[in-house]
Design a protein around this nucleic acid. Structure first.
Length: 288
DNA sequence: AGCTCTTCCTGAAAGC
DNA sequence: TGCTTTCAGGAAGAGC
């Protein structure tokens, strides 16, 4: 599933292909994952793509005013795309075969196509104008690779399980199930630990682990565990280096103990029961 | 505040 | 073999 490293990989690919191109046409299939399909049809044709950015798991295409229109006309806008679970945003030649479940087709200068395919349609697509950007960003926390150690530590002072906290996009933006599990494994912290109770040393371990894991994953083009491919349709390879995620029953690569899976914060969570010590359960909450 | 539960959706995998 | 059921999960909203 696309998380920060996968989205970053897609963004880097798009950044090499899109800026400077003009959207010459738009075709929509199913639109239930698009906030306002009519707005896309009104705004996109003729708009020029100025830049491509990433905000957590969101891809932001910065669009310039329509060529030749007066300055008072259209303001710059952002087209935000979230890949959800199974979204694929690829640049293709118009004659190339399309993935099944392709629902958005953007013609670029009549020579290329930007396509969005998403079997489960858990993705999102929405248009935000320049003035709406602060409100959009205010719902998101800091970038995991940009946040300082001090800010990171301060953000952990909540009484929530560390796994739930890391998954919460309003705390840090971009971490999903894979990279929280991989970071916690590397830092030897159990997913059910209370974030506020992590020691200073544990916070430092987690900060370092998270940054290392994300950097490595980006280097390897992300993890392809289900449908993920980059903007050229190629898979990533970081799944080969997973130490926890998806490894239930297999040996921990540090100590040999069998990796366990349990539901934490509503998500399948993989961890090593020996390296990642479970928190003590309060007497009051134990069994019944 | 922050937890659990539910909904959205399809394809893969497990079950019978 | 072939049909049916279960499961996976990011985000958002309801309810507690």
């Amino acid at each position: 599933m696309p998380e920060l490293p996968e989205v970053e990989t897609v963004v880097r690919g798009l950044r090499a292909a899109l800026p400077g191109r003009t959207i010459s046409g738009l075709r929509l299939g199913k639109t239930d994952f698009i906030e306002d399909p009519a707005a896309l049809e009104a705004a996109l044709p003729g708009a020029r793509i100025e830049a491509v950015h990433r905000f957590g798991k969101f891809i932001g295409l910065h669009l310039a005013a329509r060529n030749g229109e007066p300055a008072a006309g259209r303001r710059p806008q952002w087209l935000f795309v979230h890949l959800g679970m199974t979204g694929r945003l690829t640049v293709n030649r118009p004659d190339a075969p399309a993935w099944p479940h392709t629902h958005v087709w953007l013609s670029l200068d009549d020579t290329l196509e930007l396509r969005y395919a998403d079997p489960r349609r858990f993705g999102q697509m929405r248009l935000v104008d320049e003035g709406g950007l602060p409100a959009f960003l205010s719902r998101l926390g800091g970038e995991p690779l940009e946040v300082t150690f001090d800010t990171f530590c301060a953000s952990l002072n909540r009484r929530a399980m560390i796994k739930a906290l890391l998954l919460n996009q309003s705390v840090f933006r971009g971490l999903g199930n894979i990279y929280t599990d991989e970071s916690l494994w590397r830092a030897r912290i159990h997913p059910r630990r209370n974030a506020a109770r992590l020691t200073g040393r544990e916070r430092a371990e987690l900060y370092r682990a998270m940054r290392k894991i994300l950097a490595l994953a980006i280097q390897m083009g992300g993890s392809s565990v289900s449908d993920y491919v980059d903007s050229e349709g190629n898979p990533g390879f970081f799944q080969l280096r997973h130490n926890a995620y998806g490894r239930e029953g297999r040996g921990c690569r540090r100590c040999g103990e069998k990796i366990r899976r349990s539901i934490v914060a509503g998500r399948s969570s993989y961890f090593c029961p020996r390296c990642q010590r479970a928190p003590r359960i309060p007497r009051s909450a134990r069994q019944r």
